[in-house]
Design a protein around this nucleic acid. Structure first.
Lengths: 141, 141
DNA sequence: CTCAAATCGGATCGAATCAGTCCGATTGCC
DNA sequence: GGCAATCGGACTGATTCGATCCGATTTGAG
């Protein structure tokens, strides 16, 4: 019931990127590492995944870097978490193709997990990067 | 962003216990293991933790076993998950006494995580064992 | 056009956590 | 009083995750 450190780092990194979005159109991994305290190689790994997910656009070569591919208001915690950790699923039994549970046919727990998963995803989708940058909490609890 | 297998097992086990609650006042780990397909040693470990958390009351010796210490309607997924995995916290930085983050003072992300944690816990607390036993889904998503 | 510097991308290694198994302590029945 | 059955805690093995290192690619300068 705890997301991975990488996902946590990714949120911090994306928030920092959102802050620099308007200032300098492009920023690099070294700058973010120095600013957030996240190890440089870890930032590079995050850039790879976030770029693959389409949340950021990276440019290589001298003077390269990356930038957000969408406005901060349209990027939510759910997008970042799913980009790093994959689909939001509390249990393994709700994944398609998994049939390890012996009582799957009579399992009454499964539909409830789907409801919980939806609620969790909704909570994450309700927080955007713009809100994270401004620091204003909205009443989602 | 996925709870441990033990927590998942614990939910299944507690649901099975709730079903047998009125039938035979007491049931043992071996019975539950055979019914749910969970390995017997794993069930024993779950019994230990759930008993320590006060969700079930176990009796040792011949003819021993365990039973729910409270009515199924008053036990929620949040109780079970917290008993197995500890406090519900999405990130490590919200734990008390942890100050590994270099930008903790200016971190605007932290209060949002608290809101998300509250939302997740609310989603889990909204599902009781009684609902799990009956199999009726309520509109929580 | 060639060289050099800086960046992203993938692959490898080590560590921490977690699930599973085994043995001991305790209790009730015979 | 002895025996059997059950919970409780401790150890071992495996899997996953995080961090580091090296190579491929691209741009800018000379």
């Amino acid at each position: 019931m705890r997301l991975s450190s990488l996902a946590d780092y990714a949120v911090v990194m994306m928030t920092a990127s959102a802050r620099h979005c308007g200032v300098s159109g492009r920023l690099n991994a070294t700058l973010v590492a120095g600013e957030t305290g996240i190890p440089l190689p870890t930032v590079q790994k995050l850039v790879s995944r976030l770029s693959a997910a389409g949340l950021i656009e990276s440019t290589r070569g001298t003077g390269g870097g990356f930038r957000l591919s969408r406005p901060p208001a349209t990027i939510t915690l759910a997008d970042i978490v799913e980009a790093i950790e994959g689909p939001i699923a509390m249990t393994a039994c709700v994944d398609a193709g998994k049939h390890d549970c012996a009582i799957e046919a009579e399992c009454q727990v499964k539909p409830h997990w789907n409801a919980v998963n939806g609620a969790v995803r909704g909570a994450l989708a309700g927080v955007s990067l713009a809100q994270l940058s401004s620091g204003a909490t909205h009443g989602h609890a």
